[in-house]
Structures are given as structure tokens and as C-alpha cells.
Design a protein around this nucleic acid. Structure first.
Length: 106
DNA sequence: CAAGTGACGTAGA
DNA sequence: GTCTACGCCACTT
């Protein structure tokens, strides 16, 4: 199991309708300081046909998209499709939609 | 091995 | 609200 796979596994744990920050995903993957690696792992999915990994549910600590414009648009589109409210500025309301981790509806 | 780079995070101005 | 600086870890050169 590579670190990349652990990250992707953590991302797949994010329930629909919720989002998690890079730091959160990194923590779940066992890399408290590996937020950048999360981005790296997700970047390898970009453009991929990997529909099993909801990379679009991953945002930065501010609930904003760190992707290039085009990718951010795609992400915002998918998030809205899941019922996540995304402002026109492309910001997610973290306090409301952020996933605490492993306990979605607790 | 060293340096540069990146879909990040935190703290300070 | 904005931007800068530094720390972080994996990858590439």
C-alpha cells in the first residue's frame, strides 16, 4: 500500500454531501503533515477516468479550490450536484459541510 | 546528495 | 479582505 493509495482510500471514505480539507485527508491517511502529498495524489487523478475517488470533495483549509480555474469549475459543478452549497466565489461553507472524519452523521 | 517545485497549513502583518 | 514567510513531505531535475 503506497502512501498515494492510502490518501485515495481516505478520500473514498468521504461521504457524499460532505467535504474534507487536504489536512484532514492527510491525517486520515496517516500523514499529519502530508497535506501537500494529498494534493499530489489527487493531481495524479486529475484528467484520469478514476470515478471511484471523489477528489472533488477535497478542498483546502479555507473551503476554497486550489485547482486551476478549469479544474475548480469542474469541482464546483460536482459538489453542487451532491447538494453541497458553493458560493459564486467558489467557496464551500466548511463549518456546515466539513466532514469530521469516520463519523459522518454523528 | 542538493535544489527546485507543488491541487497545503499555520501564523503574522 | 489581502499578501508574505516558513514548515511540511514526496517527486523531479
Amino acid at each position: 500500500m503506497n502512501q498515494r493509495d492510502r490518501i485515495l482510500a481516505a478520500v473514498r471514505e468521504i461521504p457524499a454531501g460532505r467535504v474534507a480539507s487536504y489536512g484532514d485527508v492527510a491525517r486520515l491517511a496517516g500523514m499529519p503533515r502530508g497535506a501537500r502529498q494529498v494534493g499530489w495524489a489527487l493531481a495524479s487523478l486529475a484528467g484520469s477516468e478514476d470515478e471511484d475517488t471523489p477528489w472533488w470533495r477535497v478542498v483546502n483549509c479555507e473551503g476554497r479550490f486550489s485547482l486551476p480555474l478549469l479544474g475548480a469549475l469542474e469541482q464546483a459543478r460536482r459538489l453542487k450536484a451532491e447538494g453541497i452549497d458553493v458560493s459564486d466565489a467558489g467557496v464551500v461553507d466548511l463549518p456546515r459541510t466539513r466532514w469530521d472524519g469516520e463519523v459522518p452523521m454523528a
